[in-house]
Design a protein around this nucleic acid. Structure first.
Lengths: 343, 343
DNA sequence: CTGAAAGCGCTTACAG
DNA sequence: CTGAAAGCGCTTACAG
């Protein structure tokens, strides 16, 4: 029994019931007599029938789809997506699938027209925003989203006056842990690699943690040890070069991101310096490959699985009009080999 | 002027035309007078109107969406998606966006019910299959897809009798290049890390290239230097350990994948061996981080951008009922530091 | 527990 | 160039 593109009406005919009953049966409505229901479901299975999502969506005004917007543009043109966010993708998709949602992905440029469109066109019921972005351009877009009544949830820090809800990690705490570890193993001159302006609030918070850790041990960090670069991917390499070429002395590096830290290690080694012999390095994120570089990278781990699941729960909550709160999760220092010292 | 959820009818009323004309104008139909068209488009913009995709899809039987199925299960349970495939995701999404398609992602377990559903439910017009899979379980699922008239395209080797079209790289050639490079720099005993059965056709082909390279220089590869493991992520580490513990002597490794190669390097270094001093290592894929590990990994690069774009073009071709051919692309050896020797 | 009917918001022949 | 009308395949009040 093969029908090209079976509809609920085909099944109704075959089962000798009305199309409405088929629809009810397939959605497991308790209104339908159990025997009828299972008979209908069997026929559906045999015909390889699946509910037409467009028709159902048109009727119900739900797409059962979440749009995942990835943006990653703290730097150059052809930037690869940060592996950190990529690693969340799997968890997000699985969590969404468990709640019966599909995931639509979209790479965003920050200058893009931020796709109020997704929800307005009924392609998605809500959005998850993922990426280290430039907060300045960011904020007004969020306001536009909010104004259009779009449901969205941001992976990132909680920022006063920022529209919408955020789920992220406690970056101050993370920066503190990283820096404190370096200080505790006896490092004194710790370079900070990353942007610390309001542009990148998570990085600014990591820097605040860095300062706090210094204060806790009674050292004041030196401004000359703070280095930034336009492009996050190049930052590690460029920063080490400029530090070294500037004759700056330092015995440790706290990099704002694992990708930066790995670049820095590379650059140090190329200049004949040993990690952790001469310089200790700590990163942030615990990217999948952090454990595999040499030396294995000590870093601050964000629980991406928990974050991903929280994001999905939050957006689904928003879709179902349940109350949702912004939350912060505690990051955890993972000690590996790139710092040396006692561990 | 704010309307909660504007429809084409709202615009029609505002513009003083029929709803049909609005629909035509928004799709840039030449049937509509230019002035009328632009007036309508302006109103649509002002109202923040976007065509309801469910309604349009129901009418046209097109979702303008591609489903991207990622499967990655040559090994354990909680396997992370291979970064190699993850890096294709960005290119695929961009290429799809250029052709006006959305991308739905889905993580597949090979034992899953392989989602004939995607097309049958009109959520997607076609599928792209991505991953290193187990060919045995794979084949019958592909047959089921084909039987259900699902449009799909596989990233992988061209295999006789396999249903559907494939786009992939010439793995024999890639394996040859990698091995030949090791031989050319004077290595004699080259371990091969990976599965070489029909289960993993791409790996088997890479092995064939390995054998061919040996033959070309008149050496026959030794069976004892071929090592496999259940889990691709653990393979590199386990293989090196068993090779070393078995007292096997070798001066080079060709790993079937970068992830494997990186694990192998790690394990070698832990045993106090130098790469490339004692052992040269070549990988396959040119994963984003291959350039960042120490020593930087010499590897066989697959042009993921080209592959991604070809996949998208192919599936869109299939959707539009254009003829599509399976193709193979030539991989390219990228010489970095993990082999030493002349380069 | 079941059916007849309305309607979700579009697209597109058909007629003018 | 434009409009009236049908219909895509569902879901769900409404009536029985």
């Amino acid at each position: 029994m093969k029908i090209e593109n079976p509809t609920s009406r085909d099944i109704a005919d075959l089962a000798g019931v009305s199309q409405a009953t088929v629809s009810r049966a397939l959605r497991n409505s308790p209104l339908v007599r159990p025997e009828t229901r299972s008979r209908i479901q069997e026929i559906a299975k045999e015909l390889n029938y699946f509910v037409n999502r467009n028709a159902a969506g048109l009727r119900t005004h739900h797409s059962n789809t979440i749009a995942l917007l990835l943006f990653d543009e703290t730097g150059g043109e052809e930037t690869q997506i940060n592996p950190f966010f990529l690693s969340m993708l799997g968890y997000i998709t699985s969590a969404a699938a468990r709640l019966d949602y599909d995931v639509l992905i979209s790479l965003q440029q920050l200058h893009d027209d931020w796709h109020i469109e997704y929800q307005a066109s009924h392609r998605a019921d809500g959005l998850i925003l993922l990426g280290y972005g430039d907060y300045r351009t960011y904020k007004e877009k969020l306001a536009a989203l909010a104004a259009a009544n779009t449901r969205f949830i941001i992976f990132g820090p909680i920022i006063k006056d920022q529209p919408g809800n955020s789920i992220g990690c406690d970056n101050i705490n993370g920066g503190y842990q990283a820096t404190r570890h370096l200080l505790d193993i006896g490092r004194k001159r710790i370079a900070f690699l990353g942007n610390t302006t309001r542009r990148c609030p998570e990085f600014a918070d990591r820097y605040r943690g860095y300062v706090k850790a210094h204060e806790a041990v009674g050292i004041s960090p030196e401004a000359s040890l703070k280095v930034d670069a336009d492009n996050l991917e190049q930052l590690g390499i460029h920063a080490v070069q400029s530090l070294l070429d500037g004759g700056e002395s330092f015995d440790a590096i706290f990099a704002v991101t694992d990708v930066v830290a790995i670049g820095a290690i590379k650059a140090l080694q190329e200049r004949g310096l040993s990690v952790p012999g001469d310089v200790s390095v700590v990163g942030f994120d615990d990217v999948p490959l952090a454990a595999h570089v040499t030396p294995a990278l000590t870093t601050v781990q964000q629980d991406t699985r928990l974050a991903s699941e929280s994001l999905v729960e939050a957006i689904v909550g928003l879709i179902e009009a349940k109350p949702v709160e912004s939350t912060q999760m505690a990051p955890q220092l993972i000690v590996r080999e790139s710092c040396g010292g006692r561990s």
